[in-house]
Design a protein around this nucleic acid. Sequence first.
RNA 1: GGUGGGGUGGCCGAAUGGUGAGGCAGCGGCCUGCAAAGCCGCGUACGCGGGUUCGAUUCCCGUCCCCACCUCCA
Length: 482
Amino acid sequence: MGQRFYDTATGAIRDFTPIVDGEVSIYYCGATVQGKPHVGHIRSAVVFDILTRWLEYAGYRVTLVRNVTDIDDKILTRSAESFDPEFTPTDDYPASEPWWALAYRFENAFAAAYAALGVRRPTYEPRATGHIPEMIQLIQRLIDAGHAYQALDGSADVYFDVKSWPAYGALTHQSADNMQDAEDAPTRGKKDPRDFTLWKSTQESDPAGASWQAPWGAGRPGWHIECSAMATKYLGRHFDIHGGGLDLRFPHHENELAQSSAAGDRFANFWMHNGLVTAQGEKMSKSVGNTVSPEEMLSMARAGAVRYFLGQAHYRSQLDYHPAALEEAQSALERIEMFQARAAALSSTPVGLDTVPEQFSRAMEDDLNVPEALAVLHATVRAGNSALDAGDSEAVMTYLSQVNTMVEVLGLNSAAEGDDTGSAAHRALEALVDAQIAARAQARQRRDWATADAIRDQLAAAGVVVEDAADGVTWSITEPKA
RNA sequence: GGUGGGGUGGCCGAAUGGUGAGGCAGCGGCCUGCAAAGCCGCGUACGCGGGUUCGAUUCCCGUCCCCACCUCCA
């Protein structure tokens, strides 16, 4: 069939052909680091992580760039507030924190969340503040081309001239004339309320470190320009895929497209947008007050389960969170892991990676149909379990290597699990549990079921699950079920 | 007002003009001292009203409802 992706700009699923044979260049929007990560950020990262892993498995060399926007109004405002004598510090926002310290602190929080969920590092992660010259250059090209202008009020503000660009609205299929004017759209110095800021002149209240010299005066970049500048710097003026959350389509991506194409760049070949995370059908957002943070999710379930949950729906569908969702994801994941563990125990050498089943590939090629791919994974697990029960080790090994490969492509084995099996505490636990299991084995030999069951119940109450398999007794630690 | 996406069995969530994924939960069976895990089987879903068709959940028309975006947003 060949690889196909849905492209927001054309509104259709199209055959994917890389610009350079065998290579794929991807840019997707990371965070504006003004606060802690939201699950939506993480879902987006998981989606593009799966995309990258799949393309690499399929033999492409992938260059993945994800931005860190570390300068914007909110970052400066948050920082300024922290210096206010009346400011009440919180865990998330300490007092007297410079804007760059605040931005970097949250950048680290994002990195930690990505790592915890097995999101691999991109090829490069450029920061906006490190690319001011590139942005100034791009703005100058737009002014020279007649698609941007210095503010009419004489300030150093520079705006993109929406009316000068008839294709404006192409990405989201809207005509600029039909757009609702924002009630609070600042119009100072603008020719048209829809014109958006490329360069924002330095205000008196701005900290000195947040100001850069430009031909039209001191200032700092507007919100959208950094992505245009950084995407083309690292991926070229024409690259394969630009991604991000659905809510970035407008205005962020629309503006990026307008800027870059008005400057003469071809920009992205495909625009891929992931669906939003909802709770009871409504977008999770701070204003609605229905958010569940990645931190909270990680405290409720294993990292692998959170990763499974965030990745299980089709990337373009909205993903609905409900209280039992993580527990369900964990059960599904454990089913896979249980097979891997049982099957691996049959072989004295580690079982490597193989190829994925044909149907799995077909699903992934079809606009990254992960739900379908997961169905193939589960079918393979079932076939593997049957082979295990039938004692067909050769078949078991084939299924195991396929499962291992699919798990790797989906990144389900990569989430941090806080492995402490080597710790002193774990060794102590092991000795105690083993002693109990030995006592239970003696009781079972005497056919003293009451004693055997009492020992098992006692361990279970402590979170240690004992299971009798044909080839011996195993135990594992689980989260107590609520 | 404009643009886009939806309404699928108890829950989540795919595909599809005809033999109706998958997971979770549930029920029955096998296995087990009992469990657990695993395997087998079961439940017969597609917002509503029309139309096209031999046949529609899938296509068309109408209608109701939900969600997202329209310069903070993953």
